Amino acid sequence: MSEKKEVKDQFIIAYLPDLDNTQTIINNAICFAKMLNKGLILLYISDKAYKCVSITDAEILLKELSSKITGIGFHSYCAIEGQTKDIINKIPHLLSGVLLVSATEDKTNAKVKEKLASNPDIMLKNLYTSRIAYFISSQNLNSNLPFNKVVMTIDNMRESKEKVLWGSYFGRFANSEVIVYYHNYKDEFYRHQLHYNIKFVMRMFDNFKIKYNLHLSSNSKTFVDYQAIDYAKENNADLIICQTTKNKSWFEELFTLKERKVINNSQQVPVLFVNPREDLFILCE
């Protein structure tokens, strides 16, 4: 770390898995730092499991990248050697991080033969136990995020409420319009749980005077996050807010995690993921 920080501070972490492709991540992280009035730390993890550079070489480049950042009160950089998944899990205590911002490599790039930490599947594997929310976009996203419109999915699960706080941040700090996207269920118990979650959203958003709209999808069969991606693209939303699978079996981790399709969405809609865990770190306002 190049500068001293206080323990009470919280930071946006720009996780740079590939030092040859950093601008999209840094731009997005700056947008979040300004929106949430937080400092920014550029993070590189030198993990020998993937294509990497030494800590010394990384710090030289990180220092140069950090020197070009303007418009936020605090910014610094950090290069750490170790296993990516373990370091990311320690970010709340290690760096006082409250949001990780990163970007994934295009999976269709046939020229890439090396194992990259920016590969979408590898990225998700390293992040699915994260104790802070994480925002993932394509490396092809060139423009700054205006946060004008945000789509947040809600389902019948109790954990669905855990992302509502993040939905409120966009409405409160960026004056975003929040679209609460959901579909109904045939099962009466599921409908009751969904209704309870929507009431929770409405109470919180009304309390903070957030601009929001409820959008009921007529498609009750397709996973709601998949639908939200199409809706976000068609309605020019800047991102969607989703939650990850709570209880992941070994089979799901290897093959069928639903968020794998979300993070790999062909529409290249950015996604903010919230892991449903009791020790999740949240924003200090």
Score class of each variant (00 low, 15 high):
Gln243Tyr: 11
Tyr181Glu: 04
Val274Cys: 07
Asn156Asp: 09
Tyr50Trp: 06
Tyr77Met: 01
Lys161Gly: 08
Val262Met: 00
Asn27Ile: 12
Thr222Phe: 05
Lys125Leu: 15
Ile25Trp: 01
Tyr196Thr: 14
Leu116Cys: 10
Leu214Cys: 07
Phe32Ala: 05
Lys246Cys: 07
Leu95Glu: 01
Leu124Thr: 03
Leu100Asp: 05
Asp238Cys: 07
Glu259Lys: 04
Leu257Pro: 02
Arg131Ile: 12
Phe173Trp: 12
Lys209Ser: 13
Lys111Val: 13
Trp250Gly: 09
Val201Arg: 03
Leu99Gln: 03
Asp225Lys: 11
Asn184Trp: 07
Asn235Leu: 02
Leu214Ser: 08
Ser266Gly: 08
His183Asp: 02
Lys48Asn: 15
Phe32Thr: 01
Thr153Leu: 02
Leu16Ile: 15
Lys90Cys: 09
Cys78Asp: 11
Ile72Phe: 08
Thr108His: 07
Ala79Ile: 06
Asn27Phe: 10
Leu43Met: 03
Phe208Gln: 08
Phe255Gly: 08
Tyr182Ser: 01
Phe208Tyr: 15
Val224Thr: 07
Tyr134Thr: 07
Arg203Ser: 13
Pro17Ile: 00
Asp9Tyr: 15
Gln268Tyr: 11
Thr256Gly: 05
Leu36Gly: 01
Thr56Asp: 13
Asn142Cys: 10
Asn156Tyr: 12
Asn27Arg: 10
Lys246Asn: 11
Lys248Tyr: 03
Lys107Gln: 13
Arg277Gln: 09
Val201His: 02
Lys115Ala: 07
Glu177His: 11
Met123Phe: 11
Ile60Lys: 12
Lys5Ile: 14
Ile132Trp: 00
Phe223Lys: 13
Ala117Gly: 09
Asp279Gly: 06
Ala117His: 05
His183Gln: 08
Ile13Phe: 01
Ser143Ala: 13
Asp238Leu: 02
Val7Tyr: 04
Leu124Cys: 01
Leu216Lys: 15
Lys199Asn: 15
Leu40Gln: 05
Lys199Cys: 09
Ile55Tyr: 03
Ile210Val: 03
Val224Gln: 06
Ala232Asp: 02
Ile154Thr: 01
Ser2Trp: 10
Trp166Gln: 10
Thr24Arg: 00
Pro92Ile: 09
Asp106Leu: 10
Phe205Ile: 08
Lys38Gln: 04
Ser143Arg: 14
Tyr212Asn: 05
